[in-house]
Amino acid sequence: MFTALFNYWVVIVLMMAGLYIVMASGHLVKKIIGLNIFQTSVFILFISMGKVAGGTAPILKDGISVFSNPLPHVLILTAIVVGVATTALGLAIAVRIYEEYGTVEEDDIAEMDNHDQDLDIAEYQRIESGK
């Protein structure tokens, strides 16, 4: 019984760890690392679904009859590249935030935003209309 669902339990723990990093960490890049781990652990769930005991890779070769299920592999091929795309865009936004705010810590940014509210918006506009 234990070995049957071991894969899935570890995957569940990994997912929760990834989610925890995203939620707990204040640093934007650390959040993206968390997102990366969360997505990768979902991929392991998909692949361990497709494994057949005693099966080999789904490449037709004479003499081999038992294959693992190719469909999850196709899905995960797509999902991995989705993950990288999201990471790349997230990092790009984080870099832009660093250039604009000077920091990548969530709470420093939030406090700067509140400061913006009190900053005299009219003055902010004048720069805007002056441009």
Partner: peptide
């Protein structure tokens, strides 16, 4: 190990390499 050769290939190249 889970016979997902293509996916392992991609994960290594993309996960470890590019990201």
């Amino acid at each position: 190990v889970l016979d997902a050769v293509d996916v392992a290939f991609t994960e290594a190249a993309v996960g470890a390499g590019v990201s």
